[in-house]
Design a protein around this nucleic acid. Sequence first.
DNA 1: TTCTAATATTGGACTTATTCTATATATTAA
DNA 2: TTAATATATAGAATAAGTCCAATATTAGAA
Lengths: 142, 142
Amino acid sequence: MLADEIKRSLEDGGLRCTPQRYAVMAFLMEHRGHPTATEIFEAVNRMDPRSSRATTYNNLRDLVQAGLVREVAVEGRAARFDAKGIRHHHFICDQCGSVEDMEWYDVPKPPSDALGTRTLRECELIFRGLCMKCSAQRRSGS
Amino acid sequence: MLADEIKRSLEDGGLRCTPQRYAVMAFLMEHRGHPTATEIFEAVNRMDPRSSRATTYNNLRDLVQAGLVREVAVEGRAARFDAKGIRHHHFICDQCGSVEDMEWYDVPKPPSDALGTRTLRECELIFRGLCMKCSAQRRSGS
DNA sequence: TTCTAATATTGGACTTATTCTATATATTAA
DNA sequence: TTAATATATAGAATAAGTCCAATATTAGAA
């Protein structure tokens, strides 16, 4: 059952399983579309229990720190979040800015002399171009 | 001479070479450290000619559209910019958030069935981990 | 259970980043 | 010159995110 799994992973991360925090985590696991903090806040408040704006931000920060959620690197002003599940790369649409998951595959690491004394944790790809919708639009005479 | 080169590249991009726009472009070419819009605005205003905040933002938008400048994909609130010159990947420090350039090397493209009808323009790598400074700090007993 | 300390939640004020609006100014083509 | 277009500007407006002090909830010990 998903509920227990979420509860356990929160506790493993050293976080109490409060209703608000649970709701954020559950929403992220069910909606793999890289929602913004505002989207998460609004979604959670359409259900019970309610959560304040500050709490939503606090919980997102805590979840990121606990390693359960990732803040996705995209340009644009609003942070986007992603429950860490299956690894994947990201495709960002030049035109509409949507962020989509792309199947994971291993990527050649940088040569160690380029890395210097940095500590490498992970390597992620960002693809850019036009998403399916914007591609179709442009082909059919923009 | 750099000045002429900048002037020409602006005009190639269909943009007039105004003093304010020139200043933004010149600053980005001389400071390859992914400055934020505010940093660029402040730097430009330490010199002549002055530029308003709105103009700085407008020019950054125009330069990105013309393909001369890239908005870097990072998490964090403020957009960061980068004069497109030599291609490179990015290293983002988990701890201090700094963004550093990493030497370019080609990356295997996704299989076309994963891509579907998307149009791919480019593929960029994001490395995560600890930068040299934060790495050293942690080694010496945090 | 009941109690307690540590953690969370809350609304609202505040800060910061960015965009918008209206107007003035400069540049280019005719 | 003139009209059309592109730019620049200050400041207001919006959006995203943070901070705070008071209150409530939670997990675990007694």
